[in-house]
């Protein structure tokens, strides 16, 4: 039985081993909460790979179902180019409809991947959907001259106008997503625009498919497409209405605001009523979407990593001071209401168990590592850990308070690397490179797991340096900052 001290109440918290490998935590209020424990096995669960493959296969099958369905209806062929164009149109529509499911933050389907991976896939697969959606009319115009009259949008029949509306909305959606920053679109404004345009693209596309009639004449096929349309609409309603309603029943309250030396802010939250909901079972290294507002329908949700132990009742987020959202976080006061949607992400010790851990972070990139280290400390874990921290100045290190609390509770070596140190600084200087890592890491370095969290360029540089030391690629796990 592990006994830990609760930071906020300074009362002991009892952490007991649980048969499932999770931990049963008895809170000072008398409630019990099951927390996922850090597994000590050397291999990740084999089931995760199979579940990933199954979800990917399901995505593929649902995307191909409309084409398969249309085979049930015998009809005369219209030549390869026209048929290929139609196939592209069907695939574009179903893949675009499925984008709602990928972005809906469903816990079960996201868990084997991590929502960050699912959102990256959402972005990457959109390029196929756009190519297919634009390829569909282009091939038609190439195949048959008579289709070119449809270019006259004003006098074209309704079915073609629906198609134009869908394609134009899709074009606008792509432009505003790829060049959001260049267009100076704020994240919340982009988010609303993205949702509205997505619904327009799919509904107009469905309207077009129904009005064309050539492929959807069969009642069974029409019924299947109507079901498809209903699912898309349900997904939109679920994400925008049902999910916020469910989250509104689990409000959180700000209990501490702690300005970090580097300019970041640590926000400590607890359930607004201890009887309303019991804690937040997350794995150290994961993140959650946060909404600093009393209104759960406000679309201003943003993802941030937890920085506290996953075994505590209170949850901390450490947030860097950039952008308009963090300005709204700055306006938070103790006692304010916030909502939390999560946890999400697969950048965790459970997903990559090992004999010891090396963490490499820059600035606020320390956040997931603070959570991992605090959790390991609460579990009494004595596996060796190394933390390499890059910062500009030695007096601007995010997380120093939390690191000080961990002293003596872990087998941890912290290496501060300062790029612009003062004259008094006697520690490491410059950047984290192969030579620096080589000086501090043990000879049995190939058996450790490596986690990197920093800006994109530094993540690449550190990954390269680690590979230069002979660390296998499957032992290097990285995350970089970057808004969609």
């Amino acid at each position: 039985v592990t006994v830990a001290l609760d930071d906020t109440t300074a009362r002991p918290v009892f952490v007991e081993p649980h048969p499932s490998g999770h931990r049963l935590e008895r809170l000072s209020s008398g409630h019990r909460v099951v927390r996922p424990g850090v597994t000590t096995s050397r291999r990740a669960a084999p089931a995760a790979g199979a579940r990933r493959a199954a979800w990917l296969l399901l995505h593929l099958l649902v995307a191909l179902a409309p084409l398969g369905l249309s085979l049930a209806q015998p009809r005369p062929g219209r030549g390869f180019l026209v048929e290929f164009s139609v196939a592209l149109g069907f695939v574009a529509l179903s893949v675009l409809g499925l984008q709602f499911a990928l972005a809906a933050r469903f816990t079960r389907s996201n868990a084997p991947f991590g929502i960050d991976v699912v959102l990256t896939y959402h972005r990457q697969i959109s390029f196929l959907a756009v190519t297919a959606a634009f390829g569909h009319p282009l091939l038609l115009f190439v195949a048959r001259d008579r289709y070119r009259v449809l270019l006259d949008v004003v006098h074209a029949p309704l079915r073609a106008q629906c198609a134009w509306l869908s394609v134009a909305a899709l074009g606008l959606l792509m432009v505003t997503s790829i060049w959001r920053k260049a267009l100076r679109l704020s994240y919340p404004a982009w988010h609303v625009l993205h949702s509205v345009l997505g619904v327009v693209v799919v509904l107009a596309g469905l309207g077009h498919a129904f009005l064309v009639d050539h492929y959807l004449g069969e009642p069974l096929v029409r019924l299947a497409w109507a079901l498809y349309g209903a699912v898309f609409v349900w997904l939109a309603v679920w994400v925008r209405l049902i999910k916020p309603l469910r989250l509104s029943r689990r409000p959180w309250r700000v209990v501490e605001l702690w300005p970090e030396p580097g300019g970041s802010l640590t926000v400590g939250i607890e359930p607004a009523s201890r009887h309303a909901h019991l804690g937040f079972p997350f794995k150290a290294g994961q993140f959650a979407w946060i909404l600093p507002s009393r209104n759960p329908f406000n679309p201003n949700w943003h993802p941030f990593s937890m920085s506290s132990s996953s075994l505590r009742f209170r949850v901390d987020f450490t947030i860097k001071n950039v952008g308009e959202f963090t300005r709204s976080v700055r306006r938070l006061r103790v006692g304010d209401r916030v909502y939390v949607d999560g946890p999400h992400g697969s950048f965790t010790l459970e997903d990559h168990p090992g004999m010891g851990y090396v963490f490499v972070g820059a600035g606020v990139g320390i956040t997931p590592f603070l959570s991992m280290l605090a959790t390991l400390a609460d579990q009494g874990d004595r596996r060796p850990c190394w933390l390499f921290l890059a910062n500009r100045h030695e007096d601007q290190v995010t997380g120093v308070r939390q690191l000080a609390r961990l002293q003596g509770r872990l087998n941890l070596r912290v290496v501060h690397v300062i790029s612009r140190p003062s004259d008094q600084w006697s520690g490491e200087r410059g950047r984290i490179d192969t030579g620096l890592l080589d000086r501090h890491l043990p000879l049995e370095r190939r058996s450790l797991q490596y986690f990197t969290c920093a800006g994109g360029e530094m993540v690449q540089a550190v990954d390269g340096a680690l590979r230069g030391l002979g660390i296998p690629a499957d032992r290097i796990h990285s995350e970089h900052f970057g808004m969609v």
Binding site: L60, L64, A87, V91, V95, T120, L128, F347, H477, F481
Partner: peptide, 30 residues
């Protein structure tokens, strides 16, 4: 905010399978 993972292989694979199916479908339909 973090986005990680090696997802491009999955996206390429899905895209390739979808396009291949489109090709076969249109060959069968023509």
């Amino acid at each position: 905010v973090r986005f990680s993972g090696r997802t491009s292989a999955a996206a390429w694979l899905t895209s390739a399978v979808l396009l291949l199916f489109c090709l076969l479908w249109s060959l069968a339909q023509r």
